[in-house]
Design a binder for these strands. Sequence first.
DNA 1: CGAATAGTGTCTCTCAGACACTATACT
DNA 2: AGTATAGTGTCTGAGAGACACTATTCG
Lengths: 242, 242
Amino acid sequence: MQFSNVAERREQPPALAVSTVIFSLRDDERTGRKSLWLPLVRRTREPFRGQWALPGGPLGPRDSLFDAAANNLRDTTGLIPRYLEQLYAFGDLDRSPTRRVVSVVYWALVREDDPHDTATSVLLDDSNVAWFRADDPEVLGNLAFDHRQIIEYALWRLRNKVEYGSIAHRLLGERFTLAQVREVYEAVLDKELDPANFRRTLRSTPDIEETDEFLAGGKHRPPRLYRYTGSTTHPLESENIS
Amino acid sequence: MQFSNVAERREQPPALAVSTVIFSLRDDERTGRKSLWLPLVRRTREPFRGQWALPGGPLGPRDSLFDAAANNLRDTTGLIPRYLEQLYAFGDLDRSPTRRVVSVVYWALVREDDPHDTATSVLLDDSNVAWFRADDPEVLGNLAFDHRQIIEYALWRLRNKVEYGSIAHRLLGERFTLAQVREVYEAVLDKELDPANFRRTLRSTPDIEETDEFLAGGKHRPPRLYRYTGSTTHPLESENIS
DNA sequence: CGAATAGTGTCTCTCAGACACTATACT
DNA sequence: AGTATAGTGTCTGAGAGACACTATTCG
């Protein structure tokens, strides 16, 4: 769509876009602990050409908001959503220097070993997609649009949500040890937790069930593997496909 | 804007609207307790002509989302926002039978005695605006669009938020007794609370400060009046003007 | 065996809820 | 005085955190 002049453009209705903040857990070589990472996409057009931005794009007429966010996820990571929830709608007048855009932002949690959609996996080599530490100030400081504030808000929500419960397992595999869950909490909350008390707290929730399997291979007593037997919160707060 | 045929309309970009769920506390003559009420607007055009709907309308090119919600509030109640927060963006394909609409919904808390904007107070006589009990199934069952689900979600959020704290005073005046705060909690949570324990809990929060005044007039010992000395949560979660 | 983590027992402190009790206004 | 609500004191049980201790596997 083209506009003949600035005044006319200004009176166009606001455009609607959907972006997605995608979190995953990776080993941090520097600290040795796990930490949160997220993929960004390099912009190939103005405005902010060459800078990193959240995956996203305009809302197609046949996509629900959720579908659009799921497409963001698929196109940048090749993954199917396991956890995908609406974060916030950002609509300030000056978010974009060129035209008025309202962005509905979702946030996702994925695991490294989630099954890839092979049809789109060719995109994963794309040099215009890269993963960064979610709290790297160098990266956050140079993002396009207001994406820095969006990511910081997503991190805030994640931290609040993880305390509230039942989020951590989304970043893990089907079966997991309680120590792995603790590592997730420690990465997200950025503090150490007492293994004994953490274990007891987790065991007291009905959502986590023990299996008969153990994880061998460490140089210590093999830990038992557990499984998540999910419960739902409010329907809108968990449109996720499990 | 007109469309020559259905196919063309279907490919138009989704329209963007802002609606607002406005809660207030009123005496319920039937139960004698306080309960939650909200204003609705009768639709004067198709679709859903004649049915009740949430106050709202299309997003103007010069309004931020927050401004648009504040305008909804002013136009239906004449009130300035004291608490106004984004609730959710609703974007399913079939929300409206005529065209694709994405609605960003806000929710507001107001007091009966909030100052009115006199310039718009003429609208308050409008027979197309009326207040209803927020949990009246008769009303909820006949709303336009998906507004029933929206209101139920807003109620859910309110209940969760009020437990989390610091919301109740928004429905009250500048100075209030602890029993009034308890009435708010009881109305929102729809259960009775122990006055002694509730009092102790509230006093232990730093956000509520006692004044030197007492509320006379009841046929009992006059209760002390308190004042709220607010704290902020996350900026995005409280864009409210206090 | 020692190292390392898994997993248990137990003490303490804090806080929510139940509820008896005292205080002070009104009629 | 009687009533109604304000406001205090105190007991109990559940849960969070500190931390000592036992269990089991690997090298």
